[in-house]
């Protein structure tokens, strides 16, 4: 027997390739790195951790010649938890509902009109710009929080991977322009700005509203939750009546 080379590099490589948790680790590592970058750049909007992680991981997979299916079968534990995390959204939604009871009616009316405007404008503009049917469906839930939007997109025959990226970009764009845009049109109260941010730009918008004030943040959080509910309940109906 020879102990000349205790480092069996081939066995190590094989272990790495077959360990189911390799891509789980890569995903978590890239995300932590992206979060640190986001904090270092003082939350520069385009460096949102989800976008940066996706770009990093796609680059790694391309570099190593790994197909998406192999990556996903490794990293899917995180994907499974997404459903459970969606259920967990109930707790902040309930808390925010408690805090704004006095204004419930005007909020519900603004939710209905704003939420429907979001979906209908995506449908109409999508048709105008000639998006293909599956892409169009992927765009309709773009203003609601990613887990709900992805589930809805999948349910309605869209492309969940596209929806995930569109939703994050919508959130980033909405959070960047909301305050100057709304102020230009005379909407300056914390409540209305926060609420619009939550309706149009979900979690990313809510984080932006928190920077305006805790009041704006609470209304954004509520709007995000309620728009998730409204969109879930109306999207299928809207698509059924939309002339394709």
């Amino acid at each position: 027997m020879s102990f000349a080379n205790p480092l069996d590099s081939q066995a190590m490589l094989l272990a790495l390739q077959t360990a189911p948790f390799l891509w789980l680790g890569v995903t978590a590592g890239c995300f932590l790195l992206a979060e640190r970058l986001y904090a270092r750049t003082r939350h520069f909007p385009l460096l949102h951790p989800v976008l940066v992680s996706i770009v990093l991981i796609v680059a790694i997979l391309r570099l190593c010649g790994v197909p998406y299916q192999s990556y996903f079968s490794g990293a899917q534990l995180f994907h499974w938890l997404l459903g459970t995390a969606t259920v967990a959204l109930a707790v902040p939604l309930f808390d925010n509902l408690q805090r704004v009871r006095a204004l419930l009616w005007p909020l519900l009316i603004a939710l209905l009109i704003g939420g429907l405007a979001g979906m209908l404008s995506a449908l109409a503009l999508g048709k105008l710009f000639g998006l293909s049917p599956a892409v169009l469906v992927s765009f309709v839930p773009k203003s609601v929080t990613t887990p709900i939007a992805m589930a809805l997109s999948q349910h309605a025959g869209g492309l969940p991977a596209l929806t995930a990226n569109v939703v994050i970009l919508t959130g980033i764009f909405g959070a960047m322009i909301a305050v100057p845009l709304l102020s230009l049109f005379g909407v300056r109260s914390d409540i209305a700005q926060g609420f619009a941010l939550g309706i149009a730009a979900h979690g990313v918008g809510t984080a932006r509203a928190m920077q305006i004030s805790p009041t704006a943040g609470a209304f954004a959080g509520l709007a995000m939750g309620l728009n998730g509910v409204l969109t879930s309940l109306t999207l299928a109906l809207l698509l059924a009546f939309w002339p394709a």
Binding site: K142, A196, L197, I199
Partner: peptide, 24 residues
Amino acid sequence: MLAVLVLSTIITLLVAGLTLHRLL
């Protein structure tokens, strides 16, 4: 896709913000 995203987000923000502003 980019055009739809940008325009639809602007419309959603304005409609939601202006509606609530008027109601309040």
